[in-house]
Design a protein around this nucleic acid. Structure first.
Lengths: 151, 151
DNA sequence: CTATATTTGCCCACAAGGTGTTAAATGGTG
DNA sequence: CACCATTTAACACCTTGTGGGCAAATATAG
């Protein structure tokens, strides 16, 4: 099983984020990795097992040199950083990424760590709740579709 | 017969909720499951027998990558957690879900556990009563429809 | 190039949260 | 009213997250 679940955590004054023990376990056991690659992702941070990230890089290298590749390079490849865990299971988030998802700024410390298969996402909690609320509002009109899926 | 009935229960200080013995029985005998998958559902928590949840996931995987799928992923797939019963028939509700349905916060402990076919719903009791009252108000205008159904 | 500040990593200790068990309370049923 | 099933309370134990101190590394200023 991949990364699964939503966890409310916080970053400390030094910009360290705790990654749920469960996720660390999956990282080791499913991916055999000890390291994550963190980068930007739709106003949040995405963290990938290194092995997965490397697979992505190979595909990326094959891309034709067009606008898409350039944009992807700028937004995703360039800001990426390899991070390792300290003894307490925390990773150090690069300052650039913290700024990018408006952490840090005036005492914002609450983050939401979300597992989505193959990757871990780290959100500014406020942003997460807003995004979620919007999605929910849109979903309200889709009861029939939900029902058809067995929910 | 599926899950049926309304039960007023409570969550303990650590966020565990008792699931009615009747429901546990149905879970075992009708679905052959020992585990539930809990997730968000319209400001409450929905709990599905794992087997049902897996069927849903298969259908979900087939969906085209559009807005609806993304919203469903964010609100339903992502926050899901597998939970098992302890000796007393309780399940541990993840913190994120408790917060989502405003449990826990300032000593709110009362929940309503409702059976709806194929799933179990867990509501904040206050919210449940409000929702119920609204539904009843809307129903007042539907006497004809009710009559046609033989009520 | 040296001195001073800032960041980063490492370690410890504490607090909060989760798990399991036992015992008491509650509520339905005969 | 008494019995039984079931839920709730209380407790101890373990895991996990969080904050702080300190030293090494890096950056900044003199």
């Amino acid at each position: 099983m991949g990364f699964q679940g939503v966890y409310y955590n916080s970053v400390d004054a030094k910009g360290r984020a705790s990654i749920p023990a469960r996720f660390r376990e999956v990282l080791r056991e499913t991916y055999g990795d000890e390291t994550l690659v963190v980068t930007q992702d739709r106003s949040g941070i995405a963290a990938y097992p290194v092995s997965q990230w490397e697979k992505f890089l190979e595909k990326f290298a094959q891309l034709p040199h067009d606008q898409f590749r350039e944009d992807l390079h700028l937004t995703t490849v360039t800001p990426a950083a390899h991070v390792t865990f300290d003894k307490q299971g925390r990773i150090q988030l690069p300052q650039a990424l913290r700024e990018y998802c408006q952490l840090d700024t005036d005492g914002v410390r609450d983050v939401v760590v979300v597992g989505g298969d193959g990757k871990i996402q780290i959100w500014n909690k406020t942003k997460y709740l807003e995004t979620q609320a919007e999605a929910e509002r849109r979903m309200a009109d889709q009861r029939q579709k939900r029902f058809e899926l067995g929910l």
